[in-house]
């Protein structure tokens, strides 16, 4: 898969000299240090790094869930780091879809209701039925999370994120809590969202095998990007093994 097929060349996301420090009890944590990079529209990007490398912090800032200590983030031409509280809420509502490691779906809502939770407040959502169909949960729409497997719950999480019709999809260790086969199924789904729906997908993981399917790989260590390269020959999901 070439870069041309993966994206249309236009920059969708730009990070400039991002730094982030925060207090954890009595300790100051330097999560990000002067991080800069660009992502193109339609790319499937994997941000790789060990635990504590700053991947989640970076994703949270991109997703408008956190503010950097310094630096800027641009979605297309909009500087999201300059957004007010209300603008950030709008950004999270309409521009970004988030998929968490531990699914984080609402325990007292069904699969369909979980997706509706997001679409009710979105400006231009996708039809819920179609999305549930696309993620393979059409016949589980009335089930509660307690009645679903981990993989199914993660599909709900993906459906919820995608149904908002966001500009970018951010996935924080989406396979971290799943077994191998389920993990592969989820990655396939994310790949489908990227290729068939044209969504820019950013996945953060510590699993280097997952990076093989990416169009672009960013490697992080100690809050810095130590490598940023295009994957000339992305591997098919089914061929990934870990």
């Amino acid at each position: 898969m070439t870069m041309l097929q993966a994206g249309n060349g236009r920059t969708i996301l730009r990070c400039e000299h991002l730094s982030k420090s925060y207090q954890m009890g009595e300790i100051e944590v330097k999560a990000l240090q002067d991080t800069s990079f660009e992502i193109r529209e339609g790319e499937f990007v994997v941000i790789l790094g060990p635990s504590g490398s700053g991947k989640s912090t970076l994703l949270n800032i991109i997703g408008g869930m956190d503010l950097p200590t310094s630096g800027k983030v641009f979605l297309r031409d909009e500087e999201i780091t300059a957004y007010s509280e209300r603008e950030l809420t709008e950004y999270r509502r309409n521009k970004v879809g988030f998929v968490f490691q531990f699914y984080n779906i609402m325990a007292n809502l069904t699969a369909e209701e979980n997706v509706e939770l997001a679409t009710e407040i979105s400006k231009d959502p996708l039809p819920i039925g179609e999305i549930l169909e696309a993620v393979g949960l059409a016949d589980r729409r009335d089930h509660f999370p307690s009645q679903m497997s981990g993989g199914e719950q993660q599909r709900v999480s993906i459906a919820r994120a995608v149904a908002k019709n966001p500009e970018i999809l951010l996935c924080d260790e989406p396979t971290g809590a799943l077994d191998f086969n389920t993990g592969i199924a989820i990655l396939s789904l994310l790949h489908k969202v990227n290729r068939e729906m044209g969504k820019t997908v950013i996945v953060i993981t510590h699993n280097s095998d997952i990076a093989l399917m990416a169009d672009r790989v960013l490697r992080m260590r100690s809050g810095r990007i130590i490598d940023d390269h295009i994957n000339e020959n992305p591997v098919a999901v089914e061929d990934i093994k870990w």
Binding site: M65, E85, E90, R93, F100, N104, M106, I121, R160, K164
Partner: peptide, 16 residues
């Protein structure tokens, strides 16, 4: 805490 974080991540405002 986490549920509130998710709701805000989805795009619900503080007020909501």
């Amino acid at each position: 805490r986490i549920k509130i974080g998710i709701l805000k991540a989805i795009g619900y405002s503080n007020r909501q």
